[in-house]
Write a protein that binds this DNA or RNA. Structure first.
Lengths: 117, 117
DNA sequence: TGAATAGTTGAATAAGTATTCATACGTTTA
DNA sequence: TAAACGTATGAATACTTATTCAACTATTCA
């Protein structure tokens, strides 16, 4: 037992029990946090936003974001691992594009939200 | 100029220019990443999910999440700073609740998304 | 007033992560 | 085949951040 620092949860027992029942499984909440974590980085946000507009190669993205190819490549790897982008090879050039039709919607909704605040 | 490692962006100049035009301001994208970053932590996700069900005091949350009051308190501070939760005091007890009606919708949408994958 | 309770806070620690650098890989072209 | 190009990758570094610990505030109650 970690948290027995105070006793008011005994008084609020009904509330705590009720909330406990509607809480999703720990594993799902962990996955959910991991999902949002991907959007919690400016570089990845920019890459996703760019790709929502057009397929682009690594070099294009590096120029667009004014960053090194290496940094972009590392982040593309993260995005591919979580299934948000896919790629195709054309000679030496690797073109990346979105692999999830919900991405733009999520970005848009987030943007609407922060503009409301 | 950071990224002049390759030249294919010259060939793709039209694409890069077009994407550049639709990209939101850097500041907005930074804010957007910060917004999602809040959801990118299991503890905060759990707190938000719990509060979406019921107002709760710090102690209740600590018991529910099996964490120390201190850890919960620190995260509640973060959530309050970004305007996601508010609190009211009743004697010694501080009750927290959601201060943003979109939170539950965003959590739900995220959950639907990861369950689809 | 003094002890107990609920919560907050600052500093320290530990864990995670974004970028850089150097290098390696695969493809094209001279 | 050698050089050049576009990309990927591993290790190192620097930075961020979640939790813990100890101390502190504010409120209640005996």
């Amino acid at each position: 037992m970690i948290s027995t620092q105070c006793d008011c949860h005994v008084i609020h027992e009904e509330i705590v029990e009720r909330v406990k029942k509607v809480m999703p499984e720990d594993e799902n909440l962990y996955d959910l946090a991991d999902f949002f974590k991907v959007f919690g980085d400016t570089t990845r946000i920019k890459i996703l936003w760019a790709l929502s507009e057009s397929e682009m190669c690594v070099c294009d993205l590096a120029v667009l974001l004014n960053m090194t190819q290496s940094a972009i490549s590392h982040q593309l790897r993260v995005l591919k691992q979580v299934g948000m982008v896919k790629n195709r090879k054309e000679g030496k050039i690797v073109f990346y594009s979105l692999d999830d039709e919900h991405i733009k919607g999520i970005l848009d909704q987030g943007m609407i939200h922060i503009n409301e605040k």
